[in-house]
Amino acid sequence: MSAAPRSIDCREAVERLYEYLDQELTPEVRAEVEHHLRSCAGCFRHFDFERAFLRFLEARARGRGAGPEVKQRILRELFGPEEA
């Protein structure tokens, strides 16, 4: 068993906000942030809001792919006309 996570305040938690959401923290620091979030409703809501924003951003921006004609043209260019 590891020791209980170190106690951090709101300022420290928010400093780690994006690294936490991006899953870039070490397990120890992650545990510190989670420990804080369990006891702080304000930070919990803030983290939730930022997470919602990042999900929204990804969902909206990924919609733009190459259309079928563009793909056909590129495949023709890559492998010759028999692909079309």
């Binding site: 809501r45 929204f56 951003l57 909206r60």
Partner: peptide, 16 residues
């Protein structure tokens, strides 16, 4: 709107 529900109304083009 602490959950950021308003984001859902914003269209793809505006985000891009």
């Amino acid at each position: 709107d602490p959950e950021g529900r308003f984001f859902a109304n914003i269209v793809d083009d505006e985000v891009l």
